[in-house]
Design a protein around this nucleic acid. Structure first.
Lengths: 150, 150
DNA sequence: GTGCAATATTTGTTATGTTAAATATATCAG
DNA sequence: CTGATATATTTAACATAACAAATATTGCAC
């Protein structure tokens, strides 16, 4: 099927298959399918998982930095961190130097959840690599990183 | 900064910068920033815009097909289409052959909104192309399409 | 110290994601 | 033709998140 089949009256923008934001979300939905399944097993949402992953990678950090890295708005993050606190998966405490800042950190229980899902996550990553190819995947990640320059 | 700076105790998964789902969402957030700004001007949400874009590209189509293309669950889409109906941007009518199916189509008013935003959208696309590069952008879109095979 | 900016949280509203159930139509075996 | 099943979509209900505005606290310049 070419881009001209099945079109409406007069498309004035690039095909949605060649639209960056739509192509990104379509790819992401495909990737997230098995991951959401994995997470629903342990009662963790996508955003909660993202916070845990960022905390694991970068260590304890203030709320603003965490929100930037986890792609969350601060008010949303505050509520998500609260539920993670109740679950005992993270801690939150005021910074000693600047008491406006709240430092969030992952707990052993939080780390345990990541460790538990490690095999699943690796299997999902392997499946993706199998379909897309190692080389293209590396290219993709390189290009995606470039978007941070926007 | 290397991947080893600022790490927590023992990261067991790839850096979030090399994690496909997180890299996809980070890139998408960067791209969507100016687009959300553009859309807020005309009181259209991201999902509403996606529906209009897909309807413009593929023409009138049944709800299931539309949902698949716009990356929306049917119940969410039903509500979004209802608000688009109230705004007069789309129409919905039962299919003649199979009256279970609902055919959704964009109206002239809906098309007008797309046309209105055309210049803005082109400027945003041009900015992305300027930063990422035409060639890499084409590569990116090719690779993202491959994810549909997952 | 006063005023202003910065950091987070809190609150309220709206929109969406998600699951299950309900509705309407179509298909098909008998 | 009837009843059972399958398909397409909507509705309902709840949880989550986006977003905007208000509040509280701290840090900093003057």
């Amino acid at each position: 099927m070419t881009d001209d089949t099945e079109t409406a009256g007069s498309p004035v923008l690039p095909s949605t298959r060649r639209s960056i934001p739509i192509a990104l979300i379509r790819a992401r939905e495909k990737v997230m399918g098995p991951i959401r399944e994995m997470l629903s097993d342990c009662g963790i949402t996508e955003q909660q998982w993202r916070i845990l992953r960022v905390l694991e990678e970068y260590g304890p950090q203030d709320a603003s930095t965490l929100a930037e890295r986890a792609c969350l708005l601060l008010p949303s993050q505050t509520r998500i961190v609260q539920t993670l606190l109740e679950k005992g998966l993270v801690t939150r405490q005021a910074d000693d130097k600047d008491r406006r800042k709240q430092t969030v950190a992952i707990t052993a229980a939080g780390q345990a959840i990541i460790d538990d899902k490690l095999q699943d996550a690796k299997a999902i990553a392997a499946r993706i690599e199998e379909v897309i190819g190692k080389e293209k995947l590396a290219q993709l990640l390189d290009i995606l990183e470039d978007f941070q320059k926007l």
